[in-house]
Nucleic acid binder design. Structure first.
Length: 231
DNA sequence: AATCTTACCAACCGCTTTAAA
DNA sequence: GTTTAAAGCGGTTGGTAAGAT
């Protein structure tokens, strides 16, 4: 069978967006909203693939996007959620208003491995966190990883050269086991809200009402955080 | 000042999921 | 129930700015 291409590649622009293209896309979406991405480029007079338009809008042009560096709180949320969800960037982005999955993914793949290792250790095992490793967030020339290294090390602790671990007594095994067993009175067949697994109680950041196991409803989704609200 | 290296980010590609016919 | 198109997602790549030599 095979899939038809998502757009006519022969007649589409690729690469960086021009200011004019941005303006056209923004103007069109302001006037018509986010409709059918496939037909949008033609309707908006853009020589772009619908996918490309969607990506540009979602990752760059949306008015509610927050630009600039990640705050410590955002950093913390990313680390916590990544420990539980893995590379589910869209889910993580859903908990960080104004941030995109692409942005978080890029952040994780560049800053993630070294800095997150320390911060995750501090968050998950405060008693065993080693302050000295904080310097890993500012890699020295000797310890800095290349671009490829940062990419490939996103799932490793990275850095230590053969034979000489930089922090030999630090256990960086960040693997996350199964969630803690629910209290005895919690029916195990019901979904348990992620926020509960993060240690939050009903009403804290999460609007799902349940299964913070004392809750009574079976909803499993959680609302995006309000501006300035963090897990 | 020129060149090289590193880090960052925007964008593309291909696969999966979802919804409609 | 099956097929197909569209949307969404995650991995990867390429360009470039900034810093180092």
């Amino acid at each position: 069978m095979g899939r038809s291409p998502c757009c006519e590649k022969a007649h589409t622009n690729k690469g960086a967006w021009t200011k004019e293209e941005d303006e056209r896309l923004v103007a069109y979406i302001r006037a018509h909203g986010e409709g059918c991405w496939r037909s949008l480029p033609k309707a908006a007079g853009l020589l772009r693939c619908g996918k490309s338009c969607r990506l540009r809008w979602m990752n760059y042009l949306r008015p509610d996007l927050k630009r600039g560096n990640f705050t410590d709180d955002e950093d913390e949320v990313i680390i916590r959620l990544h420990a539980i969800l893995g590379n589910k960037w869209s889910l993580i982005a859903g908990q960080l208003p104004g941030r995109t999955d692409n942005e978080i993914k890029n952040y994780w793949n560049t800053h993630g491995s070294a800095a997150a290792a320390h911060r995750a250790a501090a968050l998950l095992h405060p008693a065993t966190a080693v302050p000295a490793l904080a310097s890993a967030a500012k890699p020295s020339p000797a310890a800095s990883s290349s671009d490829d290294g940062a990419r490939s090390s996103s799932s490793t602790s990275g850095g230590a050269s053969a034979g000489e671990p930089r922090c030999p007594d630090l256990n960086l095994d960040l693997s996350v086991g199964p969630p803690p067993p629910p209290p005895a009175d919690t029916p195990t067949s019901r979904p348990v809200c992620l926020c509960y697994r993060l240690g939050l109680r009903a009403g804290e950041a999460c609007g799902c009402q349940a299964d913070h196991p004392s809750g009574t409803q079976g909803l499993r989704y959680f609302r995006p955080l309000e501006q300035g609200q963090f897990i």
